[in-house]
Design a protein around this nucleic acid. Structure first.
Length: 597
RNA sequence: GGUUGAGUAGCUCAGCUGGAUAGAGCAACAGCCUUCUAAGCUGUGGGUCCAGGGUUCGAAUCCCUGCUCAAUCACCA
């Protein structure tokens, strides 16, 4: 049983024995004692004053005395105002460390075939341009979340819905046909997604020029945009695509393949993957049946012009369009269709959509509609809504060229990691491959940690200068501590020290070591909390605190130079388990930890 | 205007179910490497926790009001 639970129940017994009042154990939960006071756990006695009818100090004193006499793990206590600080017997903490050491999957809940099936949708790119910083946040959050849900005993299906159809693709296709001279990613020596992105920009450039020319002829902006021949061509192309025109479709297939090849490379570098990919071109017609079904059941209604709507005024929302008057689908209809397909493919218990907060309204509506349409997970679907990524100068704007490209960003991070490592002489004696690996891990670690450590709900500022800083609360700082422990363990092995074969029963851990063990002991609760609140940031901040604590220990205590063999073994065990938790926590963030750096 | 989220040190952020004197990092300044990796450790300075009410023995945290910022409220996706 966890020590907090032991103390809580002993405290409840104490209150009953002393004052004859039954109190709920959950109201007796001790908290971690603040650094400036002596002790490990603190019971706040204010809630018991009604029962004791005594001053806070006196009450704390009496409960402390009771615990000291009746609860063997309590070694001593002190009282400050209404706070009862308990010192837990060092032997208990040594036992906790042994428990942690014996559990290779410490902090994780096992996944069984009976575990809930959670589907997580993330990434969901458009196929007309390469991934940028905003997608990076999405991908990292989505992947980390899937790891966290898995660690909490869920079966997880990672999914991606690729927006591979629509007017935006036609724009790129048209521009390529007009001005591309049959260029390919191979002939251009460029990633396919970037090549397509270039044509999308090219389309926009010509279109703008066209509109400007028309406006110069005296047309209003709206008139000019409406009469743009280029846009008309793009729309015509979309019409032909929807009609299944083979010429358009073959260009579309070819160009999408280029984009996918580019995306795959970016995903691989980011270290994210998917179990199942849906393509909007295959799902966008699916929602219609469901909507018509809803129409039959009276969940939706039809207007005179033939359009179909849902009345959500009962839920405090507005009326929502689901089928246009020409019978075609809108975005919402497609998402209903995708939901239908997914439920056929997987018996989902929970659905999590990792999508930016600009779609809060959409998912609020989707949840209500799916629920009304009979999806058992509809009502409780989770929209994992994250804030925008802004630059110090403000928002990213593709027109102003301030968009941070994902591939460029990763290049830059790895390059900086390499430079910094080389400067510090960390790559001395490494092979070229090792140096590459280390630079890659460190660069990506810095990027991922920088993004994941902040609360997803918040808009975050991405300052390139800060993101490549490797000191302080950063990924490399954490990775470094891990590498340092690995180094100590290597040296121990070289010296023939086998810490786990040494009898440590007599070792009394010091205060600092107990602080560390106590923090290690809260890892499972942190993992659970991160799963409950869908928060990678909680894991990130926990690991940081742990590392900070370990570095203090590392600085103040000798490990290999410790002469007492048992104490030395104890510290090695402590260190190796800190490293284990670092690696575990970082893996939940999708961050690798090198063994040397 | 409605809805949702955010507002904590100069900057970037923690602060989880209400608890003691609100914490890190960066930036500034001052220290610590012939000893297990100094990408580290230690110290100094820096705060009307947006404002005002309320609940409570106790509020950055919960409730109400207001202010500011962001997103959203399309027969776009």
């Amino acid at each position: 049983m966890k020590i907090e639970q032991i103390i809580a129940s002993a405290t409840a017994r104490a209150v009953y024995a002393l004052y004859g009042t039954e109190v709920d154990e959950n109201n007796c939960m001790p908290q971690k004692t603040k650094k400036e006071f002596e002790g490990n756990l603190t019971v706040v006695v204010f809630p018991f004053l009604r029962a004791s009818k005594k001053a806070p100090e006196a009450t704390a004193q009496e409960i402390g005395e009771y615990l000291l006499e009746n609860e063997p793990t309590v070694a001593s206590y002190n009282v400050i105002k209404g706070f009862l600080n308990l010192v837990i017997a060092p032997a208990h903490w040594a036992g906790v460390l042994h428990e942690i050491d014996s559990n290779a999957r410490y902090g994780f809940t096992e996944v069984t075939p009976q575990s809930p099936l959670v589907m997580i949708e993330y990434s969901s790119p458009n196929t007309n341009k390469p991934l940028h910083l905003g997608h990076v946040r999405n991908n990292l959050l989505g992947y980390s979340l899937s790891r966290i849900m898995e660690a909490n005993g869920n079966r997880v299906v990672k999914t991606n819905i690729v927006n591979d159809r629509g007017i935006h693709i036609c724009k790129s296709m048209l521009a390529w046909q007009k001005w591309g001279n049959n260029i390919t990613p191979e002939s251009a020596g460029k990633k396919g997604d970037h090549l397509i992105g270039d044509f999308y920009v090219l389309f926009d450039k010509h279109y703008k020029a066209e509109v400007a020319a028309l406006m110069a002829q005296g047309k209003s902006k709206e008139e000019a945009e409406a009469s743009s021949p280029l846009m008309a061509e793009a729309r015509e192309m979309l019409r032909r695509w929807e009609a299944g025109d083979e010429e358009v479709r073959s260009v579309w297939r070819m160009m999408n393949e280029w984009v996918y090849a580019g995306f795959d490379e970016t995903y691989r570098r980011m270290g994210v993957d998917f179990d199942k990919i849906y393509y909007e071109s295959e799902t966008y017609l699916e929602g219609k049946d469901k909507v018509l079904e809803g129409l039959d059941k009276g969940i939706m209604y039809r207007k005179e012009d033939g359009s179909v709507w849902a009345d959500l005024t009962g839920e405090g929302l507005d009326h929502k369009l689901l089928l246009r008057s020409d019978g075609t689908s809108v975005y919402m209809t497609q998402d209903i269709g995708t939901a239908k397909l997914r439920f056929i493919d997987y018996p989902i218990d929970q659905m999590i959509y990792v999508v930016g907060n600009e779609q809060n309204y959409h998912f609020q509506v989707l949840s209500i509609l799916l629920d009304k349409l009979g999806f058992k997970w509809g009502k409780d679907l989770v929209h994992f809504s994250y804030g925008m990524v802004e630059l110090p100068e403000g928002k990213m704007k593709s027109r102003e060229g301030t968009v941070v490209d994902a591939d460029d960003l990763m290049d830059e991070m790895e390059r900086t990691a390499r430079e910094t490592s080389a400067e510090l002489g960390k790559l001395d004696g490494c092979t070229a491959e090792e140096a590459n690996e280390i630079s890659r891990m460190v660069g990506m670690g810095a990027l991922k940690y920088f993004i994941l450590k902040v609360d997803p709900r918040k808009n975050m500022t991405f300052n390139p200068k800060e993101s490549i800083d490797f000191n302080g609360n950063t990924g490399p700082f954490i990775q470094y501590t891990h590498a340092r422990i690995c180094s100590v363990m290597r040296k121990a092995a070289e010296a023939g020290i086998e810490y786990n074969k040494v009898d440590m029963t007599g070792v009394v851990p010091s205060e600092k070591e107990i602080d560390l063990i106590q923090r290690m002991a809260s890892y499972p609760a942190t993992v659970a909390e991160a799963g409950r609140t869908y928060s990678p940031a909680q894991i990130a901040n926990y690991v940081y605190d742990l590392v900070k604590e370990y570095n203090q220990f590392y600085h103040d205590f000798s490990i290999l130079r410790e002469e007492n063999e048992n104490v030395r073994a104890f510290r090695l065990m402590l260190s190796v388990n800190v490293a284990k938790i670092i690696a575990s926590g970082m893996s939940l963030l999708g961050i690798e930890v090198p063994e040397r750096m």
